[in-house]
Design a protein around this nucleic acid. Structure first.
Lengths: 178, 178, 178, 178
DNA sequence: CATGAATGAGTATTCATTCAT
DNA sequence: CATGAATGAATACTCATTCAT
């Protein structure tokens, strides 16, 4: 790919993420093209359908998150899981329910983002194992449970309310020895 | 209201709930009218905008749920909270993320369904107090926390996975004496 | 026709005139029914189509005008023509372009209101003849010319501006001995 | 603007003028698109609302008229005013009451077409001054009076009847030394 | 390759008219 | 007769996608 093409792709991806987060998934492709400073045709060259753009945005985001998780694991193995969950929850507000909105529209993320998803799960799994070793997470849960709790926590965060107490409840439940 | 009008209104509401649940909020009004066996104009007579139909569907559902909650409280005061949560979670699969989908579309339920909401919160609050009295819920949570957890649990249920373990985690977290 | 039916008919006619004048011809029949305090069905009983209501409104108005013209002729034969024109022009603002709006919508009044029209022309003709006898109108014009000027004057009045000077110009043109 | 886009814009404008004149303002945009041989979307790209299309049509027409007026002034200063009025009146039949129809629909041209309007008034003002210098127009009228008379003349023309005599009456009134 | 103009199917909403109550 | 609920055709406008420039 030519350098300028790659630059355009990256620019569109970034703008798309921000725009979806700000305005919801309903924003027209034209609007994203405008904000990215390219023609609509250029968006379509890189992402042949709107769904493929959704997918690319989410994959990209998951990659970033996986990297964050790895960095946290290196810094503070025992506390990384909760730090990471807390961070993702806080960012859920920014994402404005991207994933749920997609679900609401009938897009099944697990089908649509298999690669990014796998990477992400691996990274999350690492954090869980470290926490279990450190005794801060019960042993009868696996990475899917944590992923599920994460989904729930994000939903709760978006719903609003006393997120500290909620986080504490989940943390207590997750830490309790079974 | 005339008998036939009331019948149509109820029919439309029922069909709308089912159709939104099945197909998502995107279904055209025409489709709902078709399924309800009425003209599109009839839907619009009762619900002058699509948003008002969303709102009516949710209000209606909340009323049902409030009634369910009251019935449960009468039967089994101590266990009612968890029975109710469990039931709502199971039904979340049917709802197919109605509320989240609405959020994704930019509809703020708390603005849109104040009456039904209030009733529902009162009923849920009853259950919480009964549980606290029975010692099955920690005392440092209020009804908003429970509502928030419910939102999260529904999101998790829709996400799929081992809902029993998840429910147990939340229950443990909620029951833990603070 | 029963007394209440007649009362309804008159009420609808009055309300329709006022409403069309205020809001334009676009107002839904339902709105007129509402303002008249009757059901939509009742409007349709008396005026089976919207066009027939337009027609009835205009016919009714013309009948009033004819009566006005006759009264003026009796009072002041020489000046009646100009007084009448002036009055109609002033009322044009109230009518808000009823007739022109109808023309704009593709309704041809001359086809649609033959009776009322004829009466009106007779009354106007009377005024013209009286004015010609009194020497205040040139002799090379007939009632159609006056009607046409009236149409124009109403258009000008609605357009706004210095209606006195305009009226004077027309009056000068109409009075000038040919 | 790209050449093809400009061509489409012009084509739509031309077709819209003709179609409004023929069929009234009620014609669906789809119909105009069809007649212009473009998709509905194309009409909307150039004129994002129907009102903006009305406005563009009128602005365009006023520009043509201003040019006509200037040409006439150059040819025959003394007679230009009446020649121009006469011409506009004759063309009023073609316009089929565009402006009045707009007024009937509730569109205020003076708000909507300020630029085209100003140009037109300037051109008309020129003609009036030339006529006053040549002694063929009374000195106590200004350009607004003439504009108003024009509106009225067009209304009369559309109404039908003996337009020559009418024109003569107005001309006599306008020429009469005050 | 990039651009942005064109396409046209899709949809919420309105309203004249009919008809069951 | 009166009512107002039901009908459904009509229409402005949007936006994903294609394609000429």
């Amino acid at each position: 790919m030519r350098a300028d093409a790659a630059r355009n792709r990256a620019k569109v991806l970034k703008v798309a993420y921000e725009t979806f987060a700000e305005e919801g998934l309903g924003v027209p492709i034209d609007e994203i093209a405008r904000r990215a400073g390219v023609g609509a045709g250029t968006v379509y060259r890189h992402f042949p359908t709107k769904d493929s753009l959704y997918q690319a945005v989410v994959t990209d985001r998951m990659r970033q998150l996986s990297e964050d998780a790895q960095a946290l694991a290196a810094e503070d193995p025992g506390g990384a899981l909760y730090t990471f969950l807390r961070r993702m929850i806080d960012e859920a507000a920014v994402d404005h329910g991207l994933v749920d909105a997609m679900a609401g529209i009938g897009i099944d993320m697990s089908v649509v983002v298999p690669e990014g998803e796998r990477e992400f799960m691996v990274a999350l799994g690492e954090l869980l194992i470290l926490a279990q070793r450190a005794g801060t997470a019960r042993s009868d849960v696996d990475v899917m449970h944590v992923k599920t709790l994460l989904i729930g926590l994000q939903a709760m965060q978006r719903f609003g309310g006393d997120s500290d107490r909620i986080f504490q409840i989940i943390r207590d439940g997750l830490a309790r020895s079974s």
